[in-house]
Write a protein that binds this DNA or RNA. Structure first.
Lengths: 182, 182
DNA sequence: GGGTACATGTAATCAGTTACATGATTTA
DNA sequence: TAAATCATGTAACTGATTACATGTACCC
C-alpha cells in the first residue's frame, strides 16, 4: 500500500502501456515499444521483464501466470496503479528533455579530430539521420490506423528531430567544405 | 596498456574535455559541462569525479594531486588517451540518437488522462520548452567569444530542438482546444 | 564570527545494460 | 529432423543517480 518510494520513467512506461492495452506479457510490451517510443527512447527488453515484477511488488500491477506451456505472465493494472498513473499524468513534468547523441559528442570535440575526417563525419551523420527518418516514416505509415492518436503524435517528434538533424549536419558539412560551395 | 574493455560516452566526454583544455580538475569539468553539453545531456557531477579515476587506471589520463590545501586532482591526457580519443572520433557513430522526455511520455498516454488536464499539460510543456530555449540562447550569447566553434555549433542543436518542441506543443494545445480556434 | 554559498569529494544503492540460456515454432 | 528464428526469461556486473559530508571562502 505504501507508495513504493519513487517510480522511474520505465515504471511509468510500463504502467501506461499496461493501462492502455489490458492484459499483456513482457514480450508484447517489447513489441509495442519497438514500434513506437523505442524509436527514440530505447528500453532494453530485460527491463520490460524486470519492471513489471517491481510494479507487482508495489501493488500497481496484477500478475496472472499461465499454468502450463510457456507460463507467460500476463499483467493488468490495479486500481492503485491506475491512480498512480493518473496522478503522474496530472502533475507537471518539470524535468528537462535530454538528447543523447554520440555524433553530437563527436562534433563537440571536432577540433581535436584529424581535419581530413571532419567532413566525412558530417556526411556520415547526415546519412545516418536520413536513414532513421525513413525508418520512422515507414513505421508511422504502418501504424497510422491502429495506434492511439496521441501515441502517433508523440512519434512525430522523433521524425521532426531526425529532419532537424539532417538539416543540421548538412550545414555542418557545408561549413567544413567552404571551397566546394559553388 | 590494454584497451580497458570499452569506454562509455561519459569516458569520451571526459577524455575530450581534458584533451581540449589541458590540466583540469573535476570541478572545472563540472563547470564546463554545465555551460555546454549539460544543457541537453546531463552528467551528474559525481560522474565527473568517478570517471577520471577510471581513465587514470586505464592509462588514458594522468593525475597530479595538489600536496596541500584542497588537494585537488588535476588531470591531463596521456598519449594513449589522445590516441583513444582520435580513434573514436575517426570511427563512424552508428548508435541512433536518443530523446528522453517525460512530457512526451505523458503525451504517449494522454488518452488515459483526465480530459480537463490535457490542454493544461500541453500549455505547460510549451512554456517549459520556451524557458529552456531562452536559457540556451542566453548561454549561447554568453559563450560566443570563448568556446570552440564546434562546441558552440553543437549547442545549437539544443536550441533548435527546444524550438521544435515549442512548436510541437503549440500544435498539440491547438488540437486539444479546437473550439477555441476562431 | 557566524552564516551562507561555493567547492570538492565519497558512499550506498539500484536501475540499466550486457550477456547468457533455454523453450517453443516454423521452415527447409 | 535439423536448423533457424522467435519467444521468454535470468544472472552478473557496473555505471549512474542520490545522498551525504566536509572544507574553504566570502559577506553581513
Amino acid at each position: 500500500m505504501e507508495p513504493s518510494a519513487a517510480l522511474t520513467p520505465t515504471s511509468y512506461l510500463v504502467l501506461g502501456l499496461v493501462g492502455a492495452t489490458g492484459p499483456v506479457t513482457s514480450y508484447e510490451l517489447k513489441q509495442i515499444v519497438a514500434n513506437s517510443i523505442g524509436n527514440f527512447w530505447p528500453f532494453p527488453h530485460s527491463q520490460l521483464y524486470a519492471e513489471p515484477t517491481r510494479l507487482v511488488r508495489a501493488g500497481l500491477l496484477n500478475e496472472k501466470a499461465e499454468t502450463s506451456g510457456r507460463r507467460r505472465r500476463h499483467y493488468t493494472i490495479t486500481s492503485d496503479g491506475r491512480r498512480a498513473l493518473v496522478d503522474w499524468l496530472a502533475e507537471p513534468a518539470q524535468e528537462p528533455s535530454e538528447i543523447r547523441d554520440l555524433g553530437l559528442l563527436k562534433l563537440f570535440f571536432l577540433s581535436q579530430a584529424d581535419p581530413h575526417l571532419r567532413h566525412k563525419l558530417a556526411l556520415e551523420q547526415r546519412a545516418s539521420h536520413e536513414a532513421s527518418l525513413r525508418d520512422i516514416e515507414i513505421l508511422h505509415a504502418a501504424i497510422s490506423n491502429v495506434a492511439d492518436p496521441w501515441q502517433r503524435k508523440a512519434l512525430e517528434v522523433g521524425a521532426r528531430f531526425q529532419r532537424l538533424a539532417v538539416d543540421f549536419w548538412g550545414e555542418v558539412a557545408d561549413e567544413l567544405k567552404p571551397a566546394r560551395r559553388r
